[in-house]
């Protein structure tokens, strides 16, 4: 038994030495410190918000429920059967609308950044789109399509489309001309040029646009659901508002925020890390 654990320890040491040889001054970073470094800052931010909330509750106890009672309300929501149904309805609307907007905005952004006539045609339309509030699009969508699934998809897609296009267009304008020339010299087809040279350079813009777009899409979906659907988080928030149930309004909001944070850390961050694995870490503030 002792011999087996000794052998295992020796193998582990050899494996570690293969990556960090003894003579190397580099040492494996302490796992505990790494975890604390990742978890502590966002946890501190969360604690600060809850502390501020608590203080406001202490001053205006009738207006704002305490974080604890709201948390209990959120747990109660989670244990109710309808919660996941409504949450999935809202998330589906956010994702479908955002995906449609993203696909079109990448195409239009690249077109605007690479073809002068395209830029001249779309620029006034995009600026016009930026000035129209999401609330207006929500009303127009419900009036145009009625109370059905098309209305939230349309409202989300049309509202976030100009913001996404602006982001992608700015990215295309900053493309590395030397790499584009290289792709021309080596006879890259238009598809190869777009997929292997242009889109990889737009990755930071695409991720920024995705984050921004999802945040905005959620706001628009809630508005459309308030008066244009009979389910979803917005519909539930509206119901709670009509009976002035502040605890339920905040509890629904918190659960949706939690879902969006899960999407950010569980999906977007992981995909981004994978896609940008080639990029060396830049340490601006060296210690």
């Amino acid at each position: 038994m002792a011999s087996s654990s000794h052998t295992r320890a020796t193998v582990e040491m050899q494996q570690r030495d293969a990556v960090y040889p003894r003579e190397s001054p580099l040492r494996r970073p302490a796992v505990g410190r790494e975890i604390i470094g990742r978890i502590l800052p966002p946890l501190m931010a969360l604690v600060t918000v809850v502390a501020l909330w608590w203080m406001v509750h202490l001053v205006f106890p009738r207006l704002l429920p305490s974080p604890l009672s709201t948390f209990r309300g959120a747990v109660r929501l989670l244990s109710e059967g309808g919660f996941f149904f409504h949450m999935i309805q809202s998330l589906r609307r956010v994702f479908v609308g955002s995906t449609v907007a993203m696909v079109f905005s990448v195409a239009v952004g690249i077109y605007m950044g690479t073809v002068v006539m395209g830029e001249r045609f779309f620029q006034p339309l995009v600026v016009l789109g930026l000035t129209i509030p999401g609330l207006m699009w929500s009303l127009i969508a419900v009036m145009l399509f009625g109370i059905n699934e098309i209305a939230p998809y349309f409202a989300v897609a049309v509202t976030i489309f100009p913001m996404l296009v602006i982001n992608i267009w700015a990215g295309v304008k900053a493309l590395d001309k030397e790499l584009i020339d290289m792709s021309h010299v080596f006879h890259f087809s238009p598809w190869l040029k777009i997929s292997q040279v242009i889109i990889p350079q737009l990755v930071p813009n695409i991720f920024a646009a995705t984050r921004y777009g999802l945040g905005l899409a959620w706001k628009v979906v809630v508005v459309v659901e308030m008066f244009g659907t009979s389910n979803g988080v917005g519909y539930q928030v509206m119901k709670a508002y009509q009976i002035f149930d502040m605890e339920a309004v905040i509890a629904w909001t918190l659960t949706f925020v939690a879902a969006m944070i899960l999407i950010e850390y569980g999906i977007i961050n992981l995909v981004e890390q994978r896609v940008t694995a080639w990029r060396p870490k830049v340490e601006v503030w060296r210690r």
């Binding site: 790499l179 020339d181 990889p200 990755v203």
Partner: peptide, 8 residues
């Protein structure tokens, strides 16, 4: 310059 695609 080398003009290589850094993500490849």
């Amino acid at each position: 310059g080398p003009r290589l695609l850094p993500w490849k």
